[in-house]
Design a protein around this nucleic acid. Structure first.
Length: 277
DNA sequence: ACCCTCACCTGCACGC
DNA sequence: TGCGTGCAGGTGAGGG
């Protein structure tokens, strides 16, 4: 159930294990995982392709292949990768498998079946429907305070909802959107266009900080290399997030109980005392 | 162009 | 025990 930090770590792990490997054979086991290709096309396009590198754009994982194709993967809520030995049994919810030239098998497992794969020509990658409308990467120069200000100016939606819109800001999901607002002391109901220019740098910084701190925290952990799914956390819940999933628990700043509300059908957690404006 | 609701799935925790 | 409900870290389609 990944946002940018989890996808980033999955991408790094996959790059480490797959770079230079060849997919000898690939099987699509669930049609809706890759609705634009038939299982036959899927197998044919990946057959004997060498994996040159694995990168990321937003929450999309990109496997760059030697045959001038790119396999785009989105984990959505429950997608994960698993390395297994060639002969072992497939776990439940295995929807694709890749037989590698090192006698290992890479499985794609996805309980809720929201995950997504698509094979595109390399030269068409950034024109693809999946990538063409994505906002700038949050760590890029293009994602500047000026960009953020102008983007917020154009929207009357609640700030929390806008932060989830990948065409405005990319990489945040329900957790880190709430965390970034808490860090900025901004109320999640606040209309995007009403945020004053002088508060933009703090929000801009907070977005980068919640993402980069999460990346660092996950990267510092000992990761089960077999199970590449982003659910790496091993500590207690209160060590993870400042507001997310802490309804009724005391705010780390002021001890006021964290509140949970619903915004466009999704939970938002915030401190009603610290996040007044 | 914007904004809202619904839809896609399985599984888990909860209350009766 | 069972069953109903609501919820889960995401997004796309289709409507107004």
């Amino acid at each position: 159930m990944p946002e940018l930090p989890e996808v980033e770590l999955v991408t790094r792990q996959l790059d480490h294990h797959l770079r230079g490997r060849t997919i000898q054979r690939a099987r699509l086991l669930l049609r809706r995982l890759a609705p634009d290709t038939t299982p036959t096309q899927f197998a044919r396009l990946l057959h004997n392709s060498r994996i040159e590198s694995i990168t990321r754009r937003g929450k999309h994982i990109l496997l760059l292949l030697s045959n001038e194709r790119v396999l785009i993967v989105h984990l959505r809520m429950t997608g994960r990768f698993l390395f297994v030995s060639a002969g072992s049994r497939k776990p439940k919810h295995t929807h694709a498998e890749f037989f590698l030239d090192d006698r290992r098998r890479l499985l794609f497992i996805d309980q809720r079946q929201f995950g997504f794969m698509k094979i595109v020509r390399a030269e068409e990658l950034y024109q693809s429907k999946e990538l063409c409308k994505l906002a700038p990467e949050p760590f890029s120069e293009e994602f500047s305070p000026k960009y953020l200000y102008e983007t917020l100016q154009r929207s009357n939606r609640a700030l929390k909802e806008l932060l989830l819109d990948q065409t405005r800001v990319t990489g945040l999901g329900n957790i880190y959107a709430a965390e970034a607002l808490f860090r900025s002391r901004i109320n999640p109901h606040r209309r995007a266009s009403s945020l004053s220019r002088k508060r933009i740098p703090l929000l801009h910084n907070s977005i980068r900080e919640v993402l980069s701190e999460a990346i660092d925290r996950i990267a510092a952990m000992r990761i089960d290399i077999e199970n590449i799914d982003g659910s790496y956390f091993t500590g207690t819940n209160d060590e993870r997030w400042r507001v997310y999933d802490r309804e009724g628990k005391p705010c780390f700043n002021c001890n006021a109980p964290i509140r949970r509300i619903s915004q466009s059908g999704r939970s938002t957690f915030y401190c009603p005392n610290c996040q007044r404006g």
